[in-house]
Amino acid sequence: MDKKVIFFEVEGGTDKGPDGYRPDTMPMVDALKKRGQEAEVIFFDVTKKQQIFDYVKEHAIAYVSRINPGNLQHEEEYFAMLRELCQTGIIGMPHPDAMISYGSKDVLSKLTATNLVPDDTFAYYTIEAFKAQFPASLALTERVLKQNRGSTGEGIWRVKLAEPLADGATKVPLDAKIKCTEAKDNHVEYWQLGDFMTFCEQYITGTNGMLIDMRFLPRITEGEIRLLMLRHHPVHVVHKKPADTEDAFSATLFSGAQYRYDTPEDWAELVQNFLAQLPQVTSLLGNYDLPLIWTADFMLDTNEAGEDCYILGEMNCSCVGFTSELSLAHQVAEEILAYIHESTKVTS
């Protein structure tokens, strides 16, 4: 095979090893080379965008994006270059619009037609929509607000009433006292609803600003279940149990959550239901090919029949790492080769 698989990285950032690469990048490059597929890493630099584009267009059959958005200052230019590469026939792993579609928090509001997301899940793209709906949502049940930007639980708030509502009230008054817990570190703040909503306007304004409003699932205390996927194959499961304190609902390591690594077979019911929904998920999210490496996070809930069910909390595909499981690089390499084979068979 004379055409290369190009891995895109960016210089700097906290996700790099001593050699300057992400620790999971070179194992993938080496695993491909062992299989006779040439591969190399290119660091994206906006000042060399045209040179990089020309080189990849001429020498590559596919790219694999391994850039953490938090380390990328010129995301729009990077995505524009990836789009253009895909248009020239380079196989995108993933396509930039799939990255946006699967990785954005509003994926939840787009999937309410599936059984993965409750239908009382809302996305607010304007302050007006937030003001109109959220007091009514909160009147029904405890809520979780999630900002689109940020990571490690920042700007994800569990919101509950500090005092019961008056009988028959369908909206929470703006002067009502509320208890807010942030997922970043499970710290608690008390606010009046109107003041808190004004504070949350920062999450809606600006580029890609928006808020997701979904019901709080009390069984989060039993743990969040993260499914690691290679395209449509579940590879392993991380069970993240929040710290055992009164207000804890965050599943981040920083907040004290305990992690356990399971096999997909340990979660057969969840995996089977999710795989059965995947064609509909793909269709609702723009019909792009599934990302190469991605995750889906679930929480336990109880359905109307009193049975366990699993609710999707978020998906991530921009740059999912597997540094704690570097042996996965061989499976990833096989998946890349299968993807190339399928794609070239379709076009030939």
Rank of each mutant, 00 (worst) to 15 (best):
A113D: 15
A113Q: 15
G89R: 12
A98D: 08
M99F: 04
I100E: 09
K110E: 12
L111P: 03
I90S: 03
A129V: 10
L108W: 08
Q133V: 10
Y125A: 12
P135C: 06
P94L: 01
T88W: 11
M99E: 14
I127Y: 07
K110V: 06
D106N: 15
V107T: 15
A129R: 09
K105L: 04
H95L: 02
N115C: 08
N115G: 05
V107A: 03
N115Q: 07
F122T: 12
Q87T: 11
P94G: 05
S137L: 06
S101C: 07
E128W: 06
G92K: 01
Q133P: 00
N115Y: 01
A129E: 13
L138A: 02
P135E: 07
I127S: 04
F134Y: 14
T121P: 04
Y125F: 14
D97F: 12
D119L: 05
I90M: 06
Q87L: 13
D119N: 13
G103I: 08
Y102I: 14
D106F: 12
D97E: 15
P118K: 06
F134M: 02
C86D: 15
V107F: 00
G92E: 05
P96W: 01
S104H: 13
L138N: 00
H95F: 03
E128N: 09
Q87D: 13
Q133E: 09
D119W: 07
P94A: 14
Y124T: 09
F134P: 04
H95W: 02
T126D: 08
L108M: 13
V117M: 09
T112R: 09
P118H: 10
A136M: 09
F134N: 01
F122H: 13
S137D: 14
L140M: 07
D106W: 13
Y124W: 06
S104Y: 12
Y124L: 01
A113H: 11
D120E: 15
S101N: 11
D119Q: 12
T114G: 09
T112Q: 12
G92F: 03
T88V: 13
A129Q: 14
Y125H: 12
S104I: 12
K131W: 11
D97Y: 02
A139L: 00
D97N: 08
I127R: 09
F134I: 07
I100S: 01
L108K: 10
L116C: 04
Y102Q: 04
L108I: 08
G92Y: 04
K131S: 10
S101Y: 00
F122R: 15
D97K: 04
D120K: 12
Q87N: 13
K131T: 05
G92W: 00
L108P: 00
T88E: 15
Y125E: 14
V117S: 02
I91N: 01
L108R: 10
L108E: 11
I100T: 10
D106T: 14
Q133K: 13
A139Y: 00
S109K: 08
F130I: 01
I91C: 00
